[in-house]
Nucleic acid binder design. Structure first.
Length: 364
DNA sequence: GCTCAACTTGCATGGCCCTG
DNA sequence: CAGGGCCATGCAAGTTGAGC
């Protein structure tokens, strides 16, 4: 167990894993680095990690941050970690906001969101890996690392991008995704062998105005193939998409919908279904949470487009709400942004979502 | 379709300064 | 130099534009 300053256990690793790191650190380094200090990181048991995780979470209870303005007025806000109700509710609100921006709908603040795309559609991709490949049980962090690394670093996301932008011919602003890691075995769903281990859902949102969904479905097979190829513990038998009706079957590793409602409500149900206090969650969720907490992995990540859409929804709500000082609607005032993504962005929230890019000329 | 470095963001507290 | 008050940033995981 790693004890530095009460930070998270960094890894739940095997002793062999540590030895590799240790030996490498002792040998001469190639790039001019030299070792001044060695810190041993021991493997921890899953049970110890779970205990440390829950203890850390409980430590936040009653913790306040105090703020003050220039006039000396002070106020306090409760500090939270990423495992409490506040966090869950925020993710839940983001899922609903995204659904509104893509498909239209009423905002909590009263206004009506206009669907941004002509024909929004979604695809849900599910990536799994065996926790007992070849009959031997894997340390949970190695299993989780393999899943995420395949997607983020070993080309699965790149293949998804190629599929959307090259094979389907969409522009970069006509598709986006929400990646959500989830535990196996919630509610005794029969995935016994992998219970408490993680799997990934990648919710892909795209504008299908010029596309035939019957043709789109098979295009995602290359993404699944890439995952099976890159992820050491993934097998094709667990991702067998043959004999799947992508538009009508929802339990395969590829599932399409001509609309955003299913995806939105799926994400919202997942987020909203577990908004209770952490200690009240099922043990499978807690064990799974201990993996992410100790390994410093992110459970959720979104592409830029999706993040911008959510930001814009919040911006519109602030403009409508009497509780906010903001009076300009999203996009009412715009500024030029030289950074990544859209050039013309809202002056209030910096998001370029649903903003006509011809409204400003590039400054000299 | 691959690669990579620049860029963004999810998640999170460390450390300086003053007083006694 | 211990202890309390107070303030703002850091780390690294993950995303993307652009070159090839």
């Amino acid at each position: 167990m790693c004890e530095t300053h009460g930070r998270n256990l960094r890894r739940i690793v095997t002793e062999a894993d540590w030895r590799d790191t240790y030996v490498e650190a002792e040998s001469p380094m190639e790039n001019g680095f030299y070792v001044t200090e060695l810190e041993k990181r021991r493997a921890a048991t899953w049970a110890d990690a779970l205990s440390a995780f829950l203890t850390s979470h409980v430590d936040y209870k009653g913790l306040l941050a105090r703020f003050a303005n220039d006039d000396g007025d002070e106020f306090e806000l409760p500090l939270t970690d990423a495992w409490g109700e506040t966090y869950s509710r925020k993710q839940y609100a983001r899922a609903l906001a995204l659904q509104r921006q893509m498909g239209g709908g009423e905002r909590p603040s009263g206004g009506e969101a206009v669907a941004a795309w002509g024909s929004p559609a979604t695809a849900m991709l599910t990536f799994t890996a065996s926790s007992v490949p070849n009959g031997e049980r894997l340390p949970p962090v190695e299993h989780t690392d393999a899943l995420h690394d395949a997607f983020s670093y070993d080309g699965v996301r790149d293949t998804l991008r190629n599929t959307m932008e090259y094979h389907l011919g969409l522009d970069a602003d006509e598709w986006g995704y929400w990646l959500q890691a989830e535990p196996h075995g919630m509610g005794g769903d029969g995935s016994g062998m992998n219970a408490c281990y993680s799997h990934l859902h990648v919710g892909v949102y795209f504008d299908a105005a010029d596309l035939d969904l019957e043709v789109v479905g098979p295009e995602f097979e290359r993404v699944i193939d890439k995952h099976v190829e890159e992820c050491e513990y993934a097998s094709f038998s667990a991702h067998d998409y043959r004999n799947t009706d992508y538009l009508n079957d929802s339990d395969g590793c590829i599932s399409l919908n001509a609309g955003v409602e299913n995806m939105g409500s799926y994400l919202a149900a997942y987020m909203g279904g577990y908004t209770e206090e952490l200690l009240d969650k099922p043990v499978e969720y807690l064990a799974w949470g201990a993996i992410y907490w100790s390994a410093a992995r992110r459970r959720t990540s979104r592409s830029k487009i999706v993040t911008e859409a959510i930001k814009a929804d919040a911006c519109e709500q602030r403009a409508e709400s009497s509780e906010s000082n903001q009076t300009d609607a999203h996009g009412e005032a715009v500024v030029w942004n030289d950074g990544r993504g859209p050039d013309v962005v809202c002056a209030c929230c910096n998001s370029g979502w649903a903003i006509d890019q011809d409204r400003l000329d590039e400054p000299v």
